[in-house]
Computed example of a mutant assay.
Amino acid sequence: MNRLNLNVSDETSRLRAVILGTAASNGPVPAVEDAYDPKSRKYILAGEYPTNEDMMEEMAAVNAVLEKYNVKVYRPKHIEDCNQIFARDIGFVIDNTFVKANILPDREEEIEAIQYVIDQINPDQVIRPPEEVHIEGGDVMLHGDYIFVGTYRGEDYADYIIARTNVEAIDWLKETFPNKKVVSFNLRKDNLDPYNNALHLDCCFQPVGKNKCIIHKNGFLQEEEYQYLVDFFGKENCFEITQEEMYAMNSNIFSIAPDVVISEKNFTRLNTWLRGQGITVEEVPYAEISKQEGLLRCSTLPLIRD
């Protein structure tokens, strides 16, 4: 069996292999009390929760773009009536190590659905943090020697179903990847208001191109932590998105290469800016999937970048 030689050290290098989620059998519309995030809750209440058919079409468009760029695409095995769209939550790669995420317990079977991919990785390079470490891939952002991590440091962490990465995870990353500089960011959480909730770090920040980033100031609870990123990339290299754009998930696009991104077709202002930076923008429809407070980065799990 050919082993998968994992390699991911940043968000934008040329993509060679990825796991793309699936919307084949999302199951019935969840009850309001079962919503994992305020945006899903809003659309459940409005009777506008996305349909399987619409979401399958949107994911097929992404798959087509990935194939156009000769990226090897793996899909999760089919689980009936299970939301398997957001592959990023269940695992992530740091350099050549696959980390199985400790996610909400009732999502455990989602990891089983990609086990056939994990089986192709050298077992020495597959790790899982201890139980007290909560961490999801949407909060983990690689940038060369740096790992940027979204967290929530509040005493009321347990009260927030949308707080997915705890402070124990920061310590664990520092111990497990001592060669990396781990920088954490305290994110704004709100169980009920999707306009004031950064579910993951990639809901309010993401590097793009070679030295640029997309960022939303209000996603950060501490202004100095937001300022750290602005200074790190340089103000002229930061595309500041509005609250409305954050809500629409503008920071959750996905890079195939430093000069190629997949973005939502309605992100007019962002896509114009990206093209102005010399980046090719492959536009896809993804507005239905975004109703679940996730977009393109959330539904992809990169395995190999150059």
Rank of each mutant, 00 (worst) to 15 (best):
K174T: 14
K174L: 13
E175M: 08
E175K: 14
E175P: 01
T176V: 08
T176F: 05
F177L: 03
F177R: 10
F177K: 05
P178T: 13
N179G: 08
N179K: 15
K180G: 06
K181V: 13
K181M: 00
K181W: 01
V182W: 02
V182Q: 10
V183K: 08
S184Y: 07
S184E: 13
S184F: 14
F185M: 11
F185A: 01
L187T: 00
L187D: 01
L187P: 00
R188F: 07
D190V: 00
N191L: 05
L192F: 13
D193K: 01
D193C: 10
P194R: 03
P194I: 02
P194L: 02
P194F: 04
N196M: 08
A198D: 00
A198E: 01
L199W: 07
H200Y: 10
L201D: 03
L201M: 15
D202Q: 09
D202V: 05
D202H: 00
D202A: 08
C203I: 07
C203K: 02
C203Y: 01
C204L: 14
C204Y: 04
F205Q: 04
F205Y: 15
F205V: 03
F205S: 01
Q206V: 11
P207D: 09
V208F: 06
V208L: 12
G209E: 04
K210P: 00
N211H: 10
N211W: 01
N211Q: 14
N211M: 10
C213A: 12
I215K: 02
I215E: 05
H216Y: 15
H216M: 04
K217Y: 10
K217P: 00
N218A: 15
F220D: 04
F220M: 07
F220Y: 04
L221H: 04
L221I: 11
L221W: 00
Q222G: 01
Q222L: 13
Q222F: 15
Q222R: 03
Q222V: 10
E223N: 14
E223I: 15
E223M: 00
E223K: 15
E224A: 10
Y226C: 09
Y226G: 01
Q227M: 06
Y228E: 02
Y228G: 03
Y228V: 00
D231P: 05
F232E: 10
F232P: 11
F232R: 11
F233S: 09
F233K: 11
F233V: 07
G234K: 09
G234W: 07
G234T: 04
G234P: 09
K235G: 06
E236L: 04
E236Y: 05
C238H: 04
C238S: 08
C238E: 13
C238L: 10
F239M: 14
F239C: 05
E240D: 12
E240I: 09
E240F: 02
I241Q: 09
I241H: 06
T242E: 11
Q243G: 08
E244I: 14
E244S: 11
E245C: 08
E245Q: 15
M246H: 11
M246D: 12
Y247C: 06
A248F: 12
A248Q: 15
A248P: 01
M249P: 04
M249T: 08
M249L: 14
S251H: 05
N252M: 08
I253Q: 07
F254L: 14
